[in-house]
């Protein structure tokens, strides 16, 4: 009987270490592009096959996915832990709602609210940019709480009733494919930027080595501003989108879920890439939806799930899958 030995190949390393090799065969090209293609196909086909209820869940999932990617980008690639998700959503939602109520069609109010909202969020976060870690996180978390209370107390912007009667998307199809389209664009653009553009290296330095960035004649604060702008624009878009998905804006746009779920999604999905937070959101939001029947017990399941990932599976689902995908074992005769 011939002796067998288990051999482990690491395709990822081989492909990464030599880009020419990657293009040498159809199989390798497929290997590289495969996961991306599967994701795109899945996102494009799924809306066609699920029920209207789950179509809505998908749209909401898209919103959370954007917020999770926004959180992951800022935390893992720039080193700023922002819990401002709810603030971005609220600002974007209310801006688009106010514009729309004043007669601006949603095709314009959404992009204006996205950009203007991101400028506002960035300016408000500007004073906290020198803060690091948990301090920045806390301040960014206080803004949405504050804004919600302020609206309730002053009665501005519709007060506790919100602003009803806003334009809605022409159909759920438009809404869904818009979310998917934006999500794919954002994913493509961001991962290009962090992996291939020179500014991605600067962001990395902002996270890992502030001193070297300063000594390289680069204005640290300015790059933090750029990153916060990018990430808050994703959030303000999500808010504006929600405003027209519901046809209504209200204080619930400042709900802390928008700040917290992205953290959970990043923990579950894994923080190594931008796709980790995405995957986390794609799992957590539908899971939480389907647990609705359990009422508040949902939170308990959630907590258990999180603890499991934090304690037992720290690398996250995506990094685990990636490792399994890149390494394959087979038996060889010796």
């Amino acid at each position: 009987m011939p002796e067998l030995r288990k051999e482990r190949l690491d395709r990822g390393v081989k492909v990464r270490s030599d880009s020419i090799y990657a293009l040498s065969s159809m199989k390798e090209i497929l290997y590289l592009l495969g996961p991306g293609l599967v994701l795109i196909l899945l996102l494009l086909v799924l809306p066609l096959v699920v029920s209207p209820y789950w179509q809505r869940v998908m749209a909401i999932t898209g919103v959370y996915a954007l917020l999770s990617i926004s959180f992951g980008f800022l935390a893992n690639y720039v080193g700023l832990v922002s819990l401002g998700g709810a603030f971005y959503v609220g600002v974007g939602g209310y801006l688009s709602g106010l514009l729309n109520a004043a007669g601006v069609p949603l095709i314009l109010s959404i992009p204006i609210a996205t950009l203007l909202g991101a400028v506002i969020c960035t300016l408000l976060l500007l004073p906290c940019l020198p803060l690091r870690g948990v301090y920045f996180a806390i301040i960014s978390f206080i803004y949405p709480l504050f804004a919600g209370r302020l609206i309730a107390a002053t009665g501005y912007f519709g007060g506790t009733d919100g602003i009803p009667g806003l334009d809605r998307f022409p159909s759920i199809w438009v809404a869904l494919y818009m979310a998917i389209f934006i999500l794919l664009i954002v994913l493509y653009g961001l991962s290009r930027m962090v992996n291939y553009e020179d500014v991605g290296l600067v962001f990395r330095g902002v996270k890992d080595n502030e001193l070297a960035i300063k000594a390289s004649a680069l204005n640290l604060t300015w790059y933090k501003v750029q990153a916060v702008f990018i990430s808050s624009a994703m959030g303000t878009f999500a808010g504006a989108y929600l405003a027209h998905l519901y046809g209504w804006v209200g204080m619930s746009l400042f709900a802390i879920d928008f700040s917290i779920l992205p953290v959970a999604a990043t923990v579950v999905g894994g923080s190594g890439t931008l796709y980790g937070p995405l995957l986390g959101a794609l799992i957590l939001v539908p899971a939480s939806e389907s647990m609705r029947a359990f009422g508040t017990l949902r939170i308990v399941f959630y907590a258990v799930l999180l603890v499991f990932f934090v304690v037992f599976w720290t690398e996250g689902i995506l990094d685990f899958l990636k490792r399994k995908y890149e390494q394959f074992e087979h038996w060889v005769r010796i």
């Binding site: 290296l201 330095g205 960035i213 004649a217």
Partner: peptide, 16 residues
């Protein structure tokens, strides 16, 4: 940057 090729360490200053 420990996990990056040496030359990529020179890119941030060149980007200044």
């Amino acid at each position: 940057y420990p996990t990056l090729p040496a030359y990529k360490n020179i890119i941030p200053p060149l980007y200044s």
